[in-house]
Every structure is written in structure tokens, then in C-alpha cells.
Amino acid sequence: MFGIGFSELILIFVVALLVLGPKRLPEVAKTLGRFYREIRSTVDEVKEVVVEEPKPKHQHHQYIPPQINEEIELEEEKKEEMKEKLKGEKITFKKNQENEINESGNKES
């Protein structure tokens, strides 16, 4: 514990007993114990956070030429257009399915 041997611990206890007296020593010991527990729990919480959250790796910012940026933007636009087109086709497909179900239901009647 803190690199303190048993003999040094006894010496600290005797000095504390002489300075504080037998009446205040238990109160001070309780207070120090509570303080130590609070510090220890805070240190444990910080350790958990540090262990759980990995350190970010060094990110190197690379230069991207403007031509490449333009190509990336065009590809993103094409991607969005395809999403919209597929969304419209999905709606049309669902409507066609509903119509087929309604027609087959009408034929069975």
C-alpha cells in the first residue's frame, strides 16, 4: 500500500494519535476512509472509460485533386437518382401487385 511498510504505518498511527487525540482519531479515520473510497471509485470509472473507448488512430488528411472530388460528387448524384428511380419502381410494382390481387379476387367471385 503506497510503498509503506508495517513499521512506517505504526509510526504514522502513533503520530496521528498524538496530534489528533483518541477522541478525534476514529472520526478522522472514517473521513479519510470515505475520501479514499471516493477517489478509488472515480479512478476506476476513469479507467473503464479509457479502456472502453479506444484511442483514435492518427488520421492523415490526404489531398484529393478537384477532378476526383467532382467525380465523387457526380457518382453521389447518380446514386441518389437511382435511389429515387428505384423508389418509384417499387411503388409501381406494389400498385401492380395490389391490382392483380384485386382482379384475381373479382374473378373468383
Rank of each mutant, 00 (worst) to 15 (best):
V14C: 07
G3D: 08
E45A: 13
P22Q: 01
G33F: 10
I4N: 08
G33W: 03
K23A: 12
T31K: 09
E27N: 02
L18F: 08
L18G: 02
I12F: 14
I10G: 09
P22E: 01
P22T: 03
R37H: 01
V50S: 05
E38R: 04
R40K: 15
I12R: 11
V14F: 10
V50P: 02
L20P: 03
M1G: 08
E53K: 15
E27F: 08
F35H: 09
E45L: 10
R37M: 07
V51L: 05
K47Y: 08
V19P: 00
E48R: 12
K57I: 09
P54Q: 08
I39Q: 15
G21D: 07
I12Q: 06
L17W: 03
V28H: 03
I4D: 05
R24V: 12
G21V: 06
V51R: 04
S41L: 08
R34H: 13
K47S: 06
R37S: 10
V28T: 09
K57M: 12
R40C: 05
K30D: 13
S41W: 11
S7C: 10
L18S: 01
L9D: 00
T31I: 12
G5Y: 02
F6I: 15
F13K: 15
E8M: 07
R24M: 10
T42N: 14
V19S: 06
E53G: 01
V15N: 07
M1H: 04
G3P: 00
G5F: 02
G21T: 05
L17T: 06
V15W: 01
E53Q: 13
V51G: 00
E48M: 02
K30N: 13
I10E: 12
E8W: 04
V46K: 14
R40E: 11
V46S: 14
V14D: 13
F35P: 05
T42M: 11
R40H: 15
A29V: 10
L20D: 05
